[in-house]
Design a binder for these strands. Structure first.
Lengths: 190, 190
DNA sequence: ACGCGGATATATCGGATTGATATATCTACC
DNA sequence: GGTAGATATATCAATCCGATATATCCGCGT
């Protein structure tokens, strides 16, 4: 069975321990958001689909009138999760408006294009700072959202990727901005 | 007016010169695909929408029975394009299955996780090689798809981003693979 | 005891997007 | 004259996102 993007992150999150849809969303937003997003609009329907397919099982863990369903992997689900994690990675997508603007920078003044590149650099610096804050929290509490068991190695590793890569990108855009500024003010194309 | 992702790339592409929907798709696939994708299913409806909104104008440039509509920016469209390019970048998204698997790597043997990381590194090396080939073609013909005017600075700049960043990522995943291998074979979680 | 703001929890909707496919014509080549 | 591949547009189901609606729970101040 083909797993959707949301199915993948759900199975992975449930491999750690049982969780509700809400909890999954919190965790994704807390530390996977920068490389893998998931919305409620996908999570809840997908949970139903995965349960129907027998990969996960929902336990009603409501508290009084407060409804809550905790999902856990079934044996088949655990097998599917391991198989997916152990398989070759495939999906790799990006959508970077800063690069797109740089791509079209011939249509505006180099000075303005340089400013845009600097703004893009600032976004990456901010992202690095934000991820650094999350990493510190994981170091302390063991997870990006609430108390967990021991600090998760995978979380810290991918966070360090996000931090280093954001810093690299910030520097790259700064250099691109300098190049645009030093460029003899060419006429605007178009 | 809010521009959709596809509207942005269309306006930018038409800032260079008039093009058909098919041509836009070729160009996007040729050199912007790694950071900004667009599908026919969005391009054609969006061209109609932008024409209706008065930002672009279609010229029938059919050749006999072979239909073809070439779109160009209107004055308003050109203003919108410049305004968008000169504005601050906002969209920045990623979807990296290799990072997601690394995130969940506690659920499989470290040895296997290391192999997955190496596979992810190989994907980035292949991407770098592919972009390098495109860059050479741009250097020669001036554009990634067919003969164009002079070599476009924006194209080459973003291509060099793609190449350098892919190489950086490949090295990072190689290092991550080594770390996973050197790790005392911890038990599999879950 | 009361109320209120924020967290927990699920559900839903319009609109954007993808990827694949269908249709048709043109060009280059053998 | 045929045919493979490029040009060109259109369309569809499925997926996905962001925002919002609904409702309950908890902690806190008063």
């Amino acid at each position: 069975m083909e797993l959707s993007a949301t199915a993948k992150v759900i199975l992975g999150m449930l491999a750690g321990r049982p969780r509700s849809g809400y909890e999954i969303k919190q965790l994704v937003d807390g530390s996977a958001r920068f490389f893998w997003a998931a919305s409620y609009g996908q999570i809840y329907p997908e949970l139903k689909k995965l349960e129907k397919a027998g990969l996960i099982a929902g336990d009603d863990s409501s508290n009084g009138a407060r409804q809550r369903t905790t999902f856990k992997l079934t044996a088949r689900g655990r097998r599917a999760a391991r198989q997916w994690i152990a398989g070759p990675p495939e999906v790799l997508e990006m959508r970077d408006e800063g690069l797109l603007k740089l791509f079209f920078s011939g249509a505006v003044e180099p000075k303005r294009a340089a400013e845009v590149a600097r703004e893009r650099a600032a976004i990456s610096r901010a992202k690095a700072a934000q991820l650094r804050a999350i990493a510190e929290q994981v170091d302390e509490t063991g997870s990006p959202a609430g108390p967990e068991a021991e600090p998760d190695a995978g979380s810290l590793t991918v966070l360090s990727y996000g931090i280093e890569m954001s810093e690299w990108t910030a520097e790259w855009f700064e250099r691109a901005a300098e190049d645009l500024e030093n460029q003899t003010a060419g006429e605007v194309r178009g």
